[in-house]
Amino acid sequence: MDDAAIELEKLSHTYDKDPVLKHLDLRIEHGEIFGFLGHNGAGKTTAINILTTLLVPTGGTAKVCGHDVVTARRAVTRSIGYLPAEVRMYGHLTALENLEFLATLSDVKKPRHAAKETLDFLGCSDLANRRLATFSTGMRQRIGIAQAIVHRPDVLLLDEPTAGLDPLGVRQLRETILQLNQELGMTIFMNTHLLSEVAKVCTSIGVLNHGELIYKDTIEATTRRFPDEASLEDIYVTMGGAP
């Protein structure tokens, strides 16, 4: 496949004259698990908002599976699954109803079947008929992942997926990410602060600092490049990822 899973060229975005992304160039191949690191306010969520077509970039281009986020919005939204930092769905609806509704909005032909299949795949069929308002953060996160993959996208965009999870939840999420990548072949793009998780899950990383990409390489190459650092956290600090 010639097209990259995600390709950003000179991508820029400005909020009220404040540049948040500055000429970002990034290419992520299919099958990668990419960890996007950066301090708060670095522009990670803005990048995801552009990739999800929620924001129109003020400069440059962004493509998902070869489709431009501005000119081919519908094709892009079919190719992506998105898990926001805080998972909010309709609390008065059951998990199955939420998934069925969101699957329909993603042009899934048999939304109910797809919703049930996804819950089965994630091992949470027992939550199907419970209303979301009664769910814990961990449960909600699992349904959040279910909604993101219910239409079997090629690329999964996760925005701070470990936020608010306990250690067991973090471990479950890690296993789920690996399962999605290995069994369904999804490319994962993950915004995160949790460097330990990046080291355990990601195949490559990028570091964003004040809207500029200051580093991008595979985890192996990164470890080789910084042999004196004990952990990814030390590497991150060394390369100036801290604010």
Binding site: T52, T53, T77, R88, Y90, L102, L105, D107
Partner: peptide
């Protein structure tokens, strides 16, 4: 109100629906 204030709009408009 739900879709606007609680972030549900982010989920809805990242889908194929116009």
């Amino acid at each position: 109100a739900d879709e606007e204030s609680s972030g549900l709009g982010r989920l809805l408009f990242s889908r194929s629906m116009s």
